[in-house]
Design a protein around this nucleic acid. Structure first.
Lengths: 95, 95
DNA sequence: AACATATATCGAAAATATTAGATATGAGGT
DNA sequence: ACCTCATATCTAATATTTTCGATATATGTT
């Protein structure tokens, strides 16, 4: 499945293209947060949050850390940098 | 419709989250291109291209310029900068 | 072992996005 | 005025994403 680099890159931006996920990212800007805390701030049920966290983690921009019953999420510096570089590449006029 | 800034921002990234649109952006990195030229390089029909160009223009990252029968598209420096700043904001840990 | 809590996964419904064909519009050319 | 070409718009079909409720899993507590 190395077929399509465009599809791969599109996936990174898909992570940013949902309003609930943008709200989640905003919460994570203030540091690591437990899923249960994120859930309180959003108007979605638990399984839906889990779905969004999966997408954010899959895309690499968020990291999950399990600790006992809880999962703590935080922005991945590496993943965020990757996304930023990608966006810069895509929008820089070549010469 | 000032209701949701998150939805607005998500729209910007949606423009980047389709493989055909990423291919189009790559073509535009080499400078302004006529729709008919873009069409030759992609495996989609004309109406589908028109749909994608609409999304790219709506999001502000691409500009269209009509000249006679043709429409020429190019990256919008302003729109691209906006997207980059937005991504940086979203992924910067606050202190 | 039984229970409670936090989160993940599954399955189906609802919402949204993408696609292509048909048709419309608008600019030139004859 | 008619024709052709480039692009946009409309409509309907299909594909993908998002959502929720139900259930599963895994951890800690009594």
């Amino acid at each position: 499945m190395l077929d399509n680099i465009y599809k791969e890159n599109a996936k990174v931006f898909k992570a940013f293209s949902d309003e609930n996920r943008l709200m989640i990212l905003e919460l994570l800007r203030n540091g690591e947060k437990c899923a249960c805390v994120i859930l309180e701030d959003l108007n979605i049920v638990q399984s839906t949050l889990s779905y969004h966290m999966e997408i954010l983690c899959e895309s690499g921009i968020v990291c999950g850390r399990k600790e006992g019953k809880w999962t703590h999420y935080s922005l991945s510096e590496k993943g965020c940098k990757y996304a930023k570089n990608l966006l810069t590449d895509l929008t820089t006029v070549s010469n």
